[in-house]
Design a protein around this nucleic acid. Structure first.
Lengths: 188, 188
DNA sequence: GCGCATTGGTTGACACTTCAACCACTGCGG
DNA sequence: CCGCAGTGGTTGAAGTGTCAACCAATGCGC
C-alpha cells in the first residue's frame, strides 16, 4: 500500500505560505462542525445537520422535498439522510409519504411542529453564525471567502450538486433573510 | 428548549452576499473531510486524522510527543486521540510509554514502520491537497484564505491551541517542505 | 409485453466520535 | 506529612456516519 517507492515526479512541496493557509483550513474544518452543533444542541436538541435538513424543508414549496433532492441540498449521502429523517420523524418534526406519480420516491414534509422549531431556532442560529464567522471578517473578506469556497467546491464536488440553489440573482434584490435557509417568515 | 419566544432584539439576518458565502463555507466543511480521507484510505488505509497524528509525530523532536500535546496539534479531544492511538499502536505504527518525570503523562512515539508509512504517503497527500485546494486559487487568494481562517479560528478556538506552531517566522526562510506536516526528509 | 439496467430509497453491520465516569498521579495548603 | 483539588489519560456505552447489500419501481430496447 506504499505510495510509490520510486521518485516518479518531483513532489511540489508546500511553501510556508501555502502550508500555513492549509493547516489553518484543516483546523477550521475539524473544529467548525462541533462548534456549530453545540449551540443548536443546547437550544433545540438538534445537530447542525438536522437543523440544516429542517431549514431546507422549511424553504421548499409546500415544505416538502423528495429525499434525493433534500440530500443534494444538504450535501448528504442518501443513507445518512434516511437515518436522520427517520429520527426526525420519530420526534414528530417531519413526515414521510410516498409520491403518487413515481412510487420509488419518498417525500419528506415538515410538520407544523417542525416548522415551529425552525422558526424558534433560526434567530439564535443566525446570531451564532454571525458571531463565529461574519463578525470577524471585513466586507471584502466575506466576498473573498465566497470566491475561495466556490473555487474549492468546484474541485471537491465536481457536480456542484448543492450550493448553487440560492445563488440565482432572482432574490439578490429582496435580500433573502436566511442563514442555512431560515424560514421566510413572510410566507408563513 | 425554544430559543426565546419574545422578540428581544431584532435578528441581524444575513444578506445575499453573507448567505452565499456562509452556505458555501458550510458545504465545504461538510464535504472536505470525506474527500481528504478517501485518498489516504486508498493509498495507506489511513483516515485524514490518523495521517495527521502520524505527521505531527514525525515532525516532533525524537518523533515523540505527550498525548495532550499531540491532541492540541491535531485539534482533537483526548478521548478521541486515545482511541486512535490505540488503533495505530495495534498496527505497529506508534508506541506508547510512560514518562519518567511525570508519571501521569503518556508519551506517543512514532515507530520506524510509522515513519516509513508517513514518508511514503506524504507525497501523494501533498499532491492531493494541492489539486483540491491550492491549484484552484490564485496566490492572493491563498493569502486571503490564510487571513480569513485565522480570523475564524480566533473565534472558534479562543485559546488558539493548535495552529500557531508552525507560524513562527523561524523557518520561513528555509521553506518547510511539509503539508499537514510531512516529515522533513533532511533530518531523516 | 418481456427482460434488464438504472434510479430512489431503506436497512443492518461496522467504525468512529462523544460523553461521562473513572483512575493515577501531582502539587499545594495546612 | 496528610488531605484534596486539579491534571493527564483511559475506558465503556451510546449516538452517528459509512458502506454494502438489498428491494421496489421505472423505463428503455426489442
Amino acid at each position: 500500500m506504499r505510495y510509490d517507492g520510486a521518485m516518479t515526479e518531483p513532489v511540489p512541496w508546500l511553501d510556508a505560505r501555502e502550508r500555513a493557509a492549509w493547516l489553518r483550513l484543516a483546523a477550521m474544518v475539524e473544529l467548525l462542525p462541533g462548534t456549530l452543533s453545540q449551540q443548536l444542541e443546547r437550544d433545540a436538541d438538534l445537530s447542525h445537520f438536522e437543523y440544516y435538513v429542517l431549514a431546507m424543508l422549511s424553504e421548499a414549496p409546500d415544505r416538502t422535498l423528495a429525499m434525493s433532492a433534500l440530500a443534494q441540498r444538504t450535501n448528504a449521502t442518501l443513507p445518512r439522510l434516511s437515518h436522520v429523517v427517520r429520527r426526525l420523524e420519530n420526534r414528530g418534526l417531519v413526515e414521510r409519504s410516498g409520491c403518487p406519480t413515481d412510487r420509488r420516491v419518498t417525500m419528506a414534509h415538515l410538520t407544523p411542529a417542525g416548522w415551529d422549531l425552525v422558526v424558534d431556532t433560526a434567530p439564535g442560529h443566525v446570531r451564532h453564525v454571525r458571531s463565529l464567522i461574519l463578525d470577524g471578517l471585513t466586507s471584502e473578506q466575506v466576498d473573498q471567502l465566497h470566491e475561495i469556497t466556490a473555487a474549492i467546491l468546484d474541485r471537491i464536488d465536481p457536480r456542484g450538486c448543492m450550493v448553487d440553489f440560492y445563488t440565482d440573482p432572482a432574490d439578490t434584490a429582496g435580500g433573502t433573510a436566511a442563514a442555512d435557509g431560515a424560514p421566510e417568515a413572510k410566507t408563513a
